[in-house]
Design a protein around this nucleic acid. Structure first.
Length: 433
RNA sequence: AGAGAGGUGGCCGAGUGGUUUAAGGCGCACGCCUGGAAAGCGUGUUUCCGCGAGAGCGGAUCGAGGGUUCGAAUCCCUUCCUCUCUGCCA
């Protein structure tokens, strides 16, 4: 009752030490951060002074209790009873103070929950995705003229994916992959995992259902509850990304410095309700309720997390280059940046059949934001516990890569398979049987 | 799903109302000893919060939450989880 563990977004210590910097950084998100930060610091101050009062009261009560024990043992019952009265008063006082403390701590917690991660200095200003900064564009966009088909036409023509069948079995957004379509998808998963493990990421297979604590840990709960499928009978959630189970492997852990860097890769299906998103841009594989993804996750010493982010960006570039897909990298602007991220790079591939870019990967540094919720720490040089930094990225999300392959490599007589995939597919071309 | 057992520090494991300030062991760290090591001896070793420049002091913490009591790891209630047996099953 006397000490309140804060489950917060940004670590409170960061706010105490760098209030002005945090407020300035948060302006990029278009929120009035100065007032919020100021309110938080006031609430923090209030909580701390109440904490000190409660502690002092309890210390006195503890002292008296011990004295009573001693008095009873030496048969001085009368004196003991007198002290009991005093102790009763202290108990009342500490109870009242404790309630105030709980109120103050909860108010602080609520305020902290509203506060998103502070954007990295390199995050550009901006309102929405139209303000994202194009960092680079690589590869030639194939010019196919009017003959270019969107992937859903190709998928139907070559009998690779059956969207209607998925509707029958489950509903919209749950496609059935068939024949070479299924094989191509499996080939991509295997290729991605091999590529990732070759770069030192340890392959893991994790549960596809997670409990509430895990959802809280990586930040999907409580804010984005409506985006996850929930198994109410067992109070579990279907994962929206492997990030949740993989990062939560290290929840409540205190790492030794020698354990860095920690690098995991895992393939999982991902389930997203995508409530409220319908329209032309969700056609075919563009947006699904269930899709496959291979994820990379890193846990780093804070001093190394941005170097790690750069490595992850280069890693994903390597995958797209090997596949021969034209891509571009975006640095997300303040308005488009996710709640938990400090810096995010999105990867988009060119979709020749639709004439637009499709996001296939998102690589982020969350700094200490997730670690703070996860209680994921390490011991520093002075043996003190510090929050680690967490990062993750898609390497890669399957459906849009599949769409890109079909659309960009469509030819007169079929669809050409990139060389790196051929050992996995067992065929070099998808053509009319 | 039914029946039973159990959740204690980094790990193992004592502990059914007051020197438990959580015994003891293992591990780890440092020191003594040694030519060096092992053994031995000594000291330290949960985490979180508050105060403090620091040493340190105080509070909380025995799965979680409530209750009884001057005082709870220990008693009561609720809840979560794990294990064993039975049942079911890839």
């Amino acid at each position: 009752m006397a000490s309140h563990k804060l489950v917060v977004m940004l670590p409170i210590q960061t706010l105490r030490d760098h209030a002005a910097d945090v407020a300035t950084a948060l302006k990029k998100r278009g929120i009035d951060a100065e007032a919020m930060v100021e309110e938080i610091l006031e609430l923090d101050e209030k909580r701390r002074s109440l904490q000190a009062e409660v502690d002092a009261t309890l210390a006195e009560a503890n002292r008296i209790s011990k004295e009573i024990g001693v008095l009873y043992k030496s048969g001085k019952g009368a004196e003991a009873n007198a002290l009991k009265e005093e102790s009763g008063k202290l108990k009342e006082k500490s109870k009242a103070l404790g309630e105030d403390l709980t109120t103050a701590a909860e108010a602080l917690q609520q305020a902290l929950y509203q506060l998103p991660n502070a954007p990295h200095p390199s995050v550009p200003d901006g309102q929405d995705d139209s303000d994202n900064e194009v960092v680079k564009e690589v590869g030639e966009r194939p010019d196919m003229g009017k003959d270019a088909q969107p992937h859903w036409e190709l998928a139907s023509q070559y009998d690779l994916i059956d969207f209607e069948l998925g509707v029958k079995i489950t509903g919209a957004g749950f496609p059935v992959y068939k024949g070479k379509g299924a094989r191509l998808q499996r080939a991509l998963i295997s290729y991605f995992l091999d590529y990732n493990t070759a770069a030192g990421y340890q392959e893991v297979q994790v549960p596809h259902l997670v409990n509430e604590a895990s959802g809280m840990g990586t930040g999907q709960l409580p804010d984005k509850e409506g985006q996850m499928y929930e198994i109410t009978a067992d109070n579990l959630y279907l994962i929206p990304t492997a990030e949740v189970p993989v990062t939560n492997m290290l929840r409540d852990e205190i790492l030794e410095r020698s354990s860095f860097p920690i690098k995991y890769t895992g393939y999982t299906p991902c389930f997203r309700r995508e409530a409220g998103s319908y329209g032309a841009h969700v056609r075919g594989l563009n947006r699904l309720h269930q899709f496959d993804k291979v994820e990379i996750v890193r846990v780093e010493h804070p001093a190394n997390s941005y170097a790690a982010l750069d490595q992850m960006v280069a890693h994903v570039e390597g995958l797209l280059t090997a596949l021969g897909l034209p891509y571009r990298i975006l640095r997300l602007c303040g308005g488009d940046l996710g709640f938990t991220a400090a810096l995010t790079y999105d990867f988009e591939i060119w979709s020749a059949g639709q004439g637009r870019w499709l996001e296939v990967s998102s690589v982020s540094n969350f700094e200490a934001f997730q670690a703070n919720r996860l209680k994921l720490r390490y011991r520093d040089e002075d043996n003190k516990t510090q929050l680690a930094h967490t990062l993750n990225g898609s390497a890669l999300a399957l459906p849009r890569v599949l769409a890109g392959l079909l659309e960009n490599f469509q030819e007169e007589d079929g669809i050409r398979i990139p060389e790196v995939l051929q050992p996995y597919t067992g065929f070099a071309k998808i053509s009319q049987e």
